[in-house]
Computed example of a mutant assay.
Amino acid sequence: MIFRLDERLIFPNPELAEPDGLLAVGGDLSANRLMLAYRHGIFPWYSDETPILWYSPHERFVLYPDEVKISKSMRQVLRSARFTVTVNQSFAQVIEACSAVPRDGQDGTWITEDMKQAYITLHQLGYAHSYEVWTGKELVGGLYGVQVGRVFCGESMFSKQSNASKAALITVCQSGLYDLIDCQLHTEYLESMGSRHISRQTYMQVLEANA
């Protein structure tokens, strides 16, 4: 059963999600609703052609920072100072660049204009963060996500140069700020970096410890 949300700030129990993780439809993208969702292991994923869809996968694809895989060639890239990585310097630019990258399973962008504005608001409130990768003054990669205690809920990343998004993700892992990075859904790219599946129950235990 898929639940339809109204103006009340409530979500159904994530255990009631469909096999594909779909839990609820509707509601809004207010900061209060978004943070309530993230604190309960729920995130929005939809397109302009659909209403707001809320997901809570039965298995979560995550990266433990101390398990990140850094290849020998990537270590050389990091030592070369080819990239400069900053934090929260160009959030709007990062989300705009990410919006041009289709998510697995969708033909077009899943970062709608409403989502851009909602996450920019979360950033202004101190909940959402961006990691920017630069070559000189050119933004060549980055990622953004939402922080829930010591959990970083990664939303999207982009790369205009080889290894740029890897540099951003490795910086997140090495920051010492997080016990877990939530990658949400499986990709081969993130698997190659050391991400793996954990049960929703395990994920929720980490979230609850960080709420």
Rank of each mutant, 00 (worst) to 15 (best):
R4D: 14
E7A: 12
E7H: 10
L9H: 04
L9F: 13
I10L: 11
F11D: 06
F11A: 06
P12G: 07
N13R: 13
A17I: 04
A17H: 05
P19K: 09
L22R: 07
V25F: 07
G26A: 13
G27I: 06
S30D: 08
N32P: 07
Y38W: 13
Y38I: 00
Y38G: 04
H40Q: 14
G41Y: 03
F43Q: 01
D48Y: 07
T50R: 13
I52F: 03
I52Q: 02
W54V: 05
Y55E: 00
Y55S: 04
S56D: 07
P57W: 04
E59K: 11
R60C: 00
V62L: 02
Y64D: 01
Y64N: 09
E67P: 05
K69F: 14
S71Q: 15
K72P: 15
M74H: 15
L78F: 14
S80C: 08
S80F: 11
A81M: 14
R82D: 05
F83H: 10
F83A: 08
T84H: 13
T86L: 14
T86Q: 11
T86S: 15
T86W: 12
T86G: 13
N88F: 06
N88T: 09
S90L: 12
F91C: 04
A92F: 05
Q93P: 04
V94W: 05
V94A: 03
I95C: 09
E96Q: 11
C98S: 12
S99V: 04
P102M: 12
R103V: 04
D104L: 09
G105T: 04
G105D: 09
I111W: 00
T112A: 03
E113D: 12
K116Q: 14
Q117C: 11
Q117P: 06
Q124E: 15
L125S: 05
S130D: 08
Y131A: 04
W134G: 08
W134F: 09
G136P: 00
K137G: 01
E138F: 00
E138N: 03
L139A: 09
G141F: 10
Y144R: 02
V148D: 00
G149N: 03
G149E: 03
G149M: 03
R150L: 01
R150V: 05
V151E: 03
F152I: 03
F152V: 01
G154R: 01
G154V: 01
E155S: 00
M157K: 02
M157R: 00
S159W: 05
S162T: 15
N163I: 10
N163C: 15
A164W: 09
S165G: 02
K166G: 08
A167Q: 14
L169I: 15
C173V: 10
G176E: 10
L177D: 08
L177A: 10
Y178K: 02
Y178G: 00
D179G: 10
I181V: 09
C183M: 02
C183S: 01
Q184N: 07
Q184S: 08
T187W: 05
L190N: 04
L190R: 00
M193C: 05
G194S: 08
R196K: 15
H197G: 00
H197E: 01
R200I: 03
Q201N: 07
Y203V: 00
V206W: 03
E208G: 14
A209G: 12
A209I: 09
N210H: 06
A211P: 01
